[in-house]
Simulated assay, not measured.
Amino acid sequence: MKLSCIIIDDEPNAVDLLELLIHQSSEWVLKAKCYDALEAMNFLKKQAVDFIFLDINMPHLSGMELAALLPKETKIVFTTAYSEYAADSYAFQTIDYLLKPITLKRFLSAMQKIENHFQPVKIHLPRIEQNSSDYFFVRSGKTFHKILMRDILYVEGEREYIKLVSTDARLLIYRRLKEVEVQLPPPFIRVHNSFIVNTERLDKVEDNHIYIAEKRIPVSNKFRNQFMQMINGRLF
């Protein structure tokens, strides 16, 4: 799978080893090797990558501190000699947590996990009218997964992909959000450039944010009037 990445680590030997593993074992494009956090931040402002390899213990700015400054959608594979940060790492979009020294066996395991993370689930939705059936199917390989409309919590757009989140599944689908928007009938409503929500699953609205199953979703100005009309129509 063609993916792009960078390495952020202040240890040259660790960078060299990881670079060797990438070139020998994958088809990934290594766009840069950054030896401190500031260098990495400057690079990422100019170029996008699919994910980053990020060391935790670095001078001036640690990997955890850097991760907190990056866009929240940044996908991260942490690399460190210390296991005690593993739990904290999953506050971010962490794909894997590699302990140094990184062996070939462990790298191959991480590589499979990373590529699975980016593997889109192909979906072919018919146009769903308001009086249509209350389910559809998502195809993954030779399997067709039945998705009940009422179980969908929200749909989140991530560039050319969408993430469909239901009560019991999270599916990454190679489809743009605007294409899916026209196929989802009420009670689904667009509330942000990146979000469509199922209003029947809405828990509360507070300070221009929607809460659904502990997920905090922003309501943008662009879609606020339409959303508030729906809310006002159901005020008690």
Rank of each mutant, 00 (worst) to 15 (best):
F137Y: 14
L98G: 06
L153I: 13
L99I: 10
Y135H: 15
R150A: 07
D88P: 00
H145K: 15
S132F: 02
Y154E: 13
L164N: 08
E158G: 00
H145L: 14
M149Y: 10
K163A: 11
G141S: 10
D134G: 13
G141C: 02
D96Q: 03
S140Y: 08
I95N: 06
F118A: 14
K163V: 13
R150C: 04
A110V: 04
I102M: 12
P101K: 07
K100I: 00
K113T: 04
E158R: 11
F107G: 07
H145M: 03
R139W: 00
M111D: 03
V155Q: 12
S83R: 06
I162V: 15
H124C: 02
V121H: 09
K146M: 09
N116D: 08
D96H: 11
L99V: 08
A91Q: 07
M111V: 00
M149R: 15
R170S: 07
Y97S: 02
A110Q: 10
Q93L: 07
L171F: 15
H124A: 08
Q119Y: 11
V155H: 09
E158F: 01
I95Q: 03
T80L: 05
H145Q: 09
R170L: 02
R150N: 12
L172Y: 10
R159S: 11
P126F: 03
K146V: 07
Y154N: 14
L108W: 11
E158N: 13
V121P: 01
F92Y: 13
T167I: 11
K113F: 00
H117E: 01
F92K: 13
I128W: 02
A81H: 03
R170K: 10
E158K: 09
R127I: 11
I173W: 06
A91R: 13
A86F: 02
G141T: 06
P126V: 09
G157A: 08
V77A: 05
V155S: 06
K142P: 00
S166G: 14
